[in-house]
Each structure stands twice: as C-alpha cells, then as structure tokens.
Design a protein around this nucleic acid. Structure first.
Lengths: 208, 208
DNA sequence: TACCAGGTAGAGCGTTCTTTCCAGAGGTGG
DNA sequence: CCACCTCTGGAAAGAACGCTCTACCTGGTA
C-alpha cells in the first residue's frame, strides 16, 4: 500500500525496511525455529534497528513468526504451482519438485529446509496461533495437490488420501535429507511418489 | 559403565534421579525443542534440583539434549522392532505402525510427535553434535527397515530406496498429523506404504 | 518558516537463561 | 568417631531475552 513513494530520487534502500525485516525473520526462523531466533538477531540481520522492527511489527515476536509462516506458505505454493505448470503429468512434476528441493537444500549447505516446519514444531504446542498458521499452510498445499490429482484423472477418494501422502513424503524426505545431509531420501521420494500417482491414475481410468 | 551399583539394598528413589532427569529432558525437548526447553524447567519437571542436573550431566544442556536424542532413537527402534515381530509381512507392519503412531499422537493431544525431529531441526544448524546424533538415528532406522525389506524378498537396490521412503513418509506423516491435528495423514501413509512395499516384493519375486 | 507523520536510533527495564559455586545431607569404610 | 564420597540444595554471576520508551531525523505540506 505504500511502496511506490521512493520513485526516483531516494532509491537508497534497495528494498524497503519492512520487507528486509520480514525476510530476515523468515530465513532465521526457518533455520533456527521460533525460540532459537531473537528479535535483536532479526534486526541485525535485516540491517534495521529494534525501533524499526517494533514499528512495523507491533505484535512483537509472535507477529514476526506469523509473517514468516505466511511467507513460507506462499513460497511453497509458488514452487508447487511452478512444477505443475511445467509438467502436465503430476508424477513427473513430483520428480521435478523433489530434485529442486534437493538442489535448494544442498545449495544452502543443508540449512534451509521447509520454511514452515522448524518454526511450527517447536512453538505450536505453546502458541495456538502458530499451530493454526502452520496447519493452514499444510491444508492449503493439500488442496493444491488434490486439485491437480483429480484434474489428471484420479478419483476423489483416492486423490484425497494421495494428496496427504504427497505432502507427508515431501515434508519427511526434506526433513530426513536435511538432517542426514544427503539427497538420497528426496530422490527416492520422487520416484516412489511418481509410482503411487501413476498407480492411482491407472486404477481410475481402468475402472471407468 | 557405572550402572550396577544400586543392586538391592537402596531402592528408595522409585526411579533414580538421573533417570528422572533424562526422562524429563526427553519429553520436554520432544515437545518444545532445544531452545524452547530450559534447564530449570527440566529440573522442575524431574523433581530434581539444578545441582543434581549438573552433577549427572556436567556437559550441561548439550549433554542433556544428546541423551534425549539417544533415548528417542532407542524408543523408535523398539517400536519398529515390535511391529516387525508382530507382523511378518512388512506391509502389514507399516499399517500397524502408522495406526500406533496416530493413537499415540492423539492420546497426547497432538503434543508428542517424533522424539528426534523437534530437537534436531532447530539446533542441528548450530550444534554439529546434535545434527550428528539425529543423523545417526535416521541412519539406524533406515538400516532396520532395509534389513527387514531384503529379508522379505525385496531386491537390495529397491530396498535401499524404499527404506528411505519408509522413513520419510513416517516422519512426514507424523509431522503433518501433529501440526494439522488429524490422523488422516498417518492413515493414508500406512496404506500407501503397504502398496509400495507390496509392489517391490512382487517385482522381485516376479523377476526371479 | 512552522508543522507533522513516518520512520530511525538505541538506552534500558525487568525477566529469564545457563552455568558455576559451595555448603551440607546421608551413607560407608576404616 | 572421623574421613570420605556421592548426591542434594539453592544462591548468585553474567549474559541474553522481549519489549518499552523517548529523542531524533527527514521529506512533504501549508
């Protein structure tokens, strides 16, 4: 709503302060979780001062975390949509996606896993709003996968269950890959996911 | 190395202090992660004093966390072995296991997920010893599943990849179930896991 | 010139954190 | 009866935490 004011004569902050703070919060919480990330650390990483942080996020740490979760949510939605756009076959899309996740993980030296999981796991037991935001993200991803599966011919009941497994296996494989510092889990996940999807598509077309 | 001293005449502490501290650390870190769990909280939960904690765990919080991870590791190894003992068919064993995980999760009001993941995720980036211990656990579980799969007729190459996916899907489904507070991901995981395993067993016996 | 709102700057409050330290309780062997 | 050792109890140090607060800068408007 206020992004177009520094039009030409004051381009100093290449990216606005609020945006820098939100990005730093997202990255830091993705890596260290809610409790492991301090607000001073966020402000330092963002190149902003404490005053700026509380100016833009008066809700404090909780608001920062919710913003980080929303960003992580959108981030993965975009990634999911991208592979579905590039590969019409959902099985092939999953193979592509797992390869991209593996590349991203390795590129960050196994630091950047799922942008939701780390923040959600440690705090969702104590902070219901964080649990709610994380749950919302998973439900959203599930719906996205479910839609794509039914579009490609999987029966609704099968697609609902299969979409759960798609999300579970992606989450689990990324987690396992990150902790063991190996891309093998993600590679296996891609192949097995493709097999499951192809199986349910054949079953649906076969019984029509 | 010094565990057999209280042989018979000093059974006063129904459960020894060191054991109570270790259990409290495990449970708390499983739920809240490394940074979310304080040593004072552990000592209070264990009914021990700070002095006792540092007496038994002079390595401080890190040593407590490593002990918690080792316990979590053994815990899941036992659970895995139990279902493999009860169900000869590995596919059936996975269905049984996912049901048990779902029951345990619901019974704890979605608090007690994987005893490794929460502790590992937030801290493995900063504390290499935690990353190593968590990685060791995952590798151990993979080996256990791999052995059972090859025993039941799956070819080695397929078993290696499939064992990765077994661990990934179990981790991911438990995580997703915990965050969304629904056992649906675990139920779907059990069925799909069984399908994948049966597929690889048929493939192996078919090509012999 | 005067004013004002949006944003920046950081000192400092009260609390909590991990860790260290030492004084004692309780049982055991000489 | 004393020396000894394991374990308990808790005070306190030193640092870090989330958050509040006031002062200041800056660009636009009247």
């Amino acid at each position: 709503m206020s992004d177009e004011k520094r039009s030409a004569d004051a381009p100093e902050p290449v990216v606005a302060t609020r945006e820098r703070i939100a990005r730093a919060a997202s990255r830091l919480m993705q890596r260290q979780g809610y409790d492991g990330t301090g607000i001073k650390q966020i402000s330092a990483e963002a190149g902003a001062t404490l005053g700026s942080v509380y100016h833009f996020f008066p809700g404090g740490k909780l608001e920062l975390a919710l913003e980080a979760l929303n960003r992580g949510n959108r981030e993965f939605v975009d990634e999911l949509r991208a592979v579905f756009d590039e590969e019409e076959d959902p099985a092939a899309a999953m193979v592509l996606l797992t390869r991209r996740l593996a590349d991203g993980l390795r590129a960050s030296d196994w630091m950047d896993g799922c942008p939701i999981t780390t923040t959600a796991l440690g705090a969702s037991g104590r902070l219901p709003q964080i649990q709610a935001a994380a749950s919302e993200a998973f439900v959203r991803w599930h719906a996205l996968v479910f839609d794509r599966l039914t579009e490609s011919g999987v029966a609704e009941d099968a697609a609902r269950a299969l979409a759960h497994t798609v999300i579970s296996i992606l989450e689990g494989a990324e987690l396992t890959a990150q902790v063991t510092r190996s891309s093998a889990p993600l590679e296996a996940a891609g192949r097995h996911l493709a097999r499951l999807i192809d199986g349910d598509r054949e079953a649906a077309t076969g019984q029509e």
